[in-house]
Simulated scan of single mutants.
Amino acid sequence: MKTSDFDFHLPEELIAQTPVEPRDSSRLLVLDRERQTVNHKIFHDLPGLLKAGDLLVLNHTRVLPARLIGVKQETEAKIELLLLRREERDVWEVLIKPAKRLKIGNKVLFGEGMLAAEVIEVLPDGNRKVRFQYEGVFEELLDCLGRMPLPPYIREQLEDQERYQTVYAKESGSAAAPTAGLHFTPELLAKLQERGVETAEILLHVGLGTFRPVKAERIEEHVMHSEYYRVLPEAAEQINRAKAEKRRVIAVGTTVTRTLESIADAEGLVRAGEGWTDIFIYPPYRFKAVDALITNFHFPKSTLVMLVSAFAGREFLLQAYETAVRERYRFYSFGDSMLII
């Protein structure tokens, strides 16, 4: 298929710059694949749209304050560093701006030397591997010195850094938020539990490859980024029990979808474990584990809109996106949401 098959017109003013309050007051576009209908709801209507026995699968990753601003030790030139992936204890793959200023052996200082990063390798794609040097606990220094790595299309300052975390975020490691989960509140999760909706938690650390554009003319030629996942035995057991009992498994976000589809067998049963996934889902694709999907609105021609097109049907999804644009829904990370059943 052509990348252009997943293009659509999006007015720039519909790109949400700030989150709505409260979280669950965002709009919710409900797509019924069987009836081919679209309905307009509010996210706090979700308990009435789900059924007792439905299993919501959440990604409890937490976004690192992964953006560090420092100076090159030798020249005091300003350097911006973005943590991408932890290779070992103090060695990280990072994105550096401006990269051309840093060669192997150069150091960047943060917080007047509280934290230092020495370049130890230049990677083929221009990224660097650095080794951090510090005294104390790295995570505490990062909380003190780092900033939230908001996507490039968000130009407004975020006053509350926790607003770019889900309320159930636990384990740090992501360079971006699993944004489909940003709409949940503790109160809404409690109402869903009262409704008889179960929840299971898995982990996938979101990488910046999420925002990487598809440059290939044909989507089959695109090289997908890899991301770390972990599914504990308890979560796998919950998912497999739901599948065995013909209850719906509802993925909260494309990160959960990619994880479950990576580890599911032909019957939709999943295995506990951890690893790296670079699964690229696009039409036609037969979903094995996921029965319904909660997701935000995505970039034109992105791997995410391709995944959702595979789930909803490309023409139906693009028609729904046209409706969302016409009705002035808000797009991307701080935007509104979709429920696809």
Score class of each variant (00 low, 15 high):
204 L>M: 13
277 T>V: 12
46 L>R: 00
210 T>H: 10
228 Y>M: 05
16 A>N: 06
48 G>N: 15
102 L>I: 13
66 A>T: 03
312 A>E: 01
30 V>E: 03
226 S>W: 11
341 I>T: 13
320 A>G: 06
179 T>H: 04
144 C>F: 09
122 V>H: 10
40 H>R: 08
292 A>Q: 05
229 Y>N: 01
266 A>Q: 14
36 Q>D: 10
181 G>F: 00
165 Q>W: 08
75 T>P: 04
286 R>Q: 14
21 E>M: 08
197 V>L: 07
227 E>G: 03
184 F>Y: 02
220 E>T: 10
210 T>V: 13
60 H>C: 02
59 N>V: 08
172 S>G: 04
242 A>R: 06
71 V>I: 13
303 T>V: 09
282 Y>N: 05
36 Q>S: 12
66 A>R: 05
325 V>F: 03
295 T>R: 01
213 P>F: 10
306 M>K: 07
267 E>Y: 11
153 Y>S: 05
133 Q>T: 13
111 G>E: 09
229 Y>T: 04
121 E>H: 14
47 P>K: 02
291 D>M: 10
95 L>I: 11
26 S>H: 01
90 D>N: 15
257 T>Q: 02
294 I>G: 00
266 A>M: 09
99 A>C: 08
6 F>L: 09
292 A>W: 04
98 P>Y: 11
227 E>R: 06
225 H>A: 09
5 D>S: 14
300 P>T: 09
69 I>Q: 06
65 P>S: 03
29 L>P: 00
8 F>E: 05
108 V>L: 06
269 L>E: 04
61 T>E: 05
148 M>P: 04
223 V>Q: 15
116 A>C: 07
278 D>H: 15
122 V>W: 01
152 P>Y: 05
101 R>N: 14
231 V>A: 07
292 A>T: 07
273 G>W: 06
141 L>K: 09
289 A>V: 06
158 L>I: 15
144 C>H: 10
296 N>W: 05
66 A>C: 05
181 G>A: 10
7 D>A: 14
327 E>L: 12
279 I>Y: 07
112 E>Y: 08
156 E>A: 14
252 V>Y: 02
21 E>S: 15
101 R>T: 14
118 E>Q: 15
263 I>Y: 08
310 A>R: 08
188 L>Q: 03
78 K>S: 14
206 V>T: 12
138 F>Y: 12
149 P>M: 06
182 L>K: 01
211 F>T: 10
3 T>H: 04
40 H>T: 03
13 E>Y: 08
283 P>Y: 11
183 H>T: 04
131 R>D: 02
51 K>A: 15
44 H>L: 13
221 E>R: 12
175 A>P: 03
250 I>W: 00
157 Q>N: 07
262 S>H: 10
55 L>A: 08
12 E>F: 03
316 F>R: 13
324 A>I: 02
115 L>R: 01
221 E>H: 11
160 D>L: 10
124 P>F: 01
247 R>M: 14
99 A>T: 13
83 L>S: 00
265 D>M: 08
47 P>R: 06
70 G>I: 02
320 A>L: 04
189 L>A: 06
168 Y>R: 09
42 I>T: 15
261 E>S: 09
